[in-house]
């Protein structure tokens, strides 16, 4: 029976922050917001670390490859939540919609910032991959979100030690922990504990691709 209730421990208006920051919105809403912010990725809150990454000098090709690898994953995640918000996985209840909206918003920001950073550094951002997802209902949507987010955490954790440029290390860590927050959030929405493990196992690029492969068309 555990997990079906919605009650936070504290009976405070828990949705207020989400609502106030406009997270419960459609893609169009997000893009409008981005436009209001001036269309530059660096106007996005918290992206200061990327502003520095974009100005980095002598960035080796291997760092650009890591950024493009991350961009592919972020595209995949963004696409997944966009489909969910478009109703592809059936009707989502209010809490799951809020979850999908928040993650869509974050992953879209990751895509925008990674792309512009790669361009600023003289690289060529990869195109969005073609994706495919099985037929999912709300419950499976949340469970697959756990898988995707855990994969994201493992991917950034695995890539971090190989990054050479300090500003790019900072930027990667700033996303890495957000992916972990998403993973715990997904677990909680699924009614399971947010953290079971003492150490989070990193993934190699190959392991990451293996996990992402079923969703790439």
């Amino acid at each position: 029976m555990e997990g079906i209730t919605n009650a936070p421990v504290r009976a405070e208006p828990a949705e207020s922050i989400v609502a106030a920051e406009g997270f419960a919105q459609t893609r169009r809403g997000f893009l409008n917001k981005a436009a209001v912010l001036g269309g530059t990725a660096f106007a996005v809150s918290g992206a200061g670390v990327f502003a520095q990454a974009a100005r980095a000098q002598n960035v080796p090709e291997s760092d650009l490859e890591i950024l493009n690898f991350a961009l592919t994953l972020e595209y995949l995640e963004t696409d997944y939540y966009e489909r969910a918000l478009n109703g592809e996985f059936g009707r989502l209840n209010a809490g799951v919609t809020r979850f999908a909206s928040l993650l869509f918003s974050h992953e879209s920001e990751h895509v925008a910032v990674l792309s512009s950073t790669i361009s600023s550094l003289g690289g060529t951002p990869v195109d969005a991959p073609k994706t495919k997802f099985p037929k999912l209902n709300q419950r499976k949507f949340v469970r697959t979100a756990i898988v995707l987010e855990l994969t994201g955490v493992g991917a950034y954790g695995g890539a971090f030690p190989a990054i050479k440029t300090k500003a790019i290390k900072e930027a990667a860590l700033a996303i890495h922990s957000v992916e972990a927050r998403h993973a715990a959030y997904a677990r909680i929405v699924a009614g399971t504990p947010g953290a079971k493990e003492s150490f989070f196992k990193p993934l190699t690029m190959e392991q990451t691709l293996e996990r992402a492969q079923p969703f790439l068309a």
Binding site: I4, A7, R139
Partner: peptide, 8 residues
């Protein structure tokens, strides 16, 4: 759970 409703 998160106040946004647990699924299952």
């Amino acid at each position: 759970t998160h106040n946004g409703v647990a699924v299952e």
